[in-house]
Design a protein around this nucleic acid. Sequence first.
RNA 1: CGGGAUGUGGCUCAGUUUGGUAGAGCGCUGCGUUCGGGACGCAGAGGUCGUGAGUUCGAAUCUCGCCAUCCCGACCA
Length: 500
Amino acid sequence: MSSNLGITSRETNYSEWYNELVLKADLADHSAVRGCMVIKPHGYALWELMQRALDDMFKATGHVNAYFPLFIPRSFMEKEAEHVEGFAKECAVVTHHRLKANPNGPGLIPDPDAKLEEELIVRPTSETVIWNTYSKWIQSYRDLPLLINQWANVVRWEMRTRLFLRTSEFLWQEGHTAHETYEEAEEEALTILNECYARFCEEWMATPVLKGIKSKNEQFPGADHTYCIEALTQDLRVIQAGTSHHLGQNFAKAFDTKFVDRDNTLKYVYATSWGVSTRLVGTLIMVHSDDKGFVCPPKLAPFQVVIVPMGRDEETRAKTVGASEEFAAQLKAKGIRVKVDKREKESPGFKYNYWELRGVPVRIELGPRDLDSGALPISRRDTGEKTTVALAEVVAHCEMLMTDIQSALLARATAFRDANTKRVDTWAEFEAAFSGEGGAGFVVAHWDGTPETEELIAEKTKATIRCIPLEPLLPSDNEPGVCILTGKPSARRVVFGKAY
RNA sequence: CGGGAUGUGGCUCAGUUUGGUAGAGCGCUGCGUUCGGGACGCAGAGGUCGUGAGUUCGAAUCUCGCCAUCCCGACCA
């Protein structure tokens, strides 16, 4: 019994299940630095696949990549009032540029003679450095639109962290665009939301998302308004998977970014910014995985197929390993990422559990009996179903499983989401829905539209408005009603949930 | 920053009450036997018991300080 492959069940303790899964599936590890994680090769391979898919989408919608510095002068952070308020309390600050031997004891101390004239902030997000730069680049309407993305790390000094879901340092992409008009910026923010983020979640992560707009309380500090995609986890909490902000002219004004328009008048540009992070990895885990470990959609799986050759004696082993390599080559030729697990010490049963824990979508068992009988047992990770497939059909079968598992996962997650979306019309029902420890799914209810009511509801139930859907989930959601708490008029239903 | 808990081989923990010079399981290394759902035997390696001071003939164990981590709250992609 190897204790290294078992994890706590979701039912026993969901949060422990998640933590153990991340560690034991070799996705990430805790680091020596509080709140930061080490992304292990298996987890990083997954992130790279996500990056590639998203990057292609950004390029396809006309964006280019660039890189801006990690450090931001303190004075830049002070320029946009709401932005300051939103981020100031979680900034890491660089104050010195040199260490020296401690004159009063062992070790090193920051050299008092090397104190920075102006402190540098480790970016919590890059709007300020980028807008400082853009103001130099943008002179004319001919310079617009400016459509730039960067892949970077950022630091937000979080009080409580969890691997992938919230770490003090995380990896992400941040797009920053400049436009002539409000409408153009609006279109940009929505294009990213619809054409990139929501599509990525559904087509690659097999994760249905709710597209919406954030309430004023929840929007990005410095934004005119914020769009978001929200997903539902298996413990019925709501997780924000990505955001796209229309920044209006707030940053243009703060950084004095003006352009000469076609009519020869000086105008402030309109801006957007948008981002998704390594939190997507956490989201992916929470949406699909089970008590045996990670369940990964084929399109994002670092290994899509694992082949386990059997046999102990030299002769048998040479035969099964040889045949495995042959199948692997054929699968690779079809663009499938394959692993042949040739380890000799581990038993086949151990390997099954090992790869199931790590989320490989398809497993092929290859032993002497199979070669004799001319068919291989092939198992799918999502359902556990095992079928026997004729040797000649193996490659085609694997190809079929790639698309089949991908769509089955989306269908399953969508059914789960739908089954856990409910409409509530009275305060008693609302309170009851959120009375338990965990989440309550998407709770669709009327709200009078005021921040005060939103805060009051959050105080009483811990539930917050996750978003105001862009399109009603049901047509009737857009009919007027009365607020769940105050009884005041409400134009439409909004989505409540317990947030991650 | 409040409230609670915990620090002992790589990991999970026992030993602390009643002080006597460090243990188990898993993992790791080697050899042999095994291989179709978490294999087994034998032989090994590996620990200044978080840290500093104190009490004592003697401290993982008792006392005080410090540090770190985890859980619960306030903050958050």
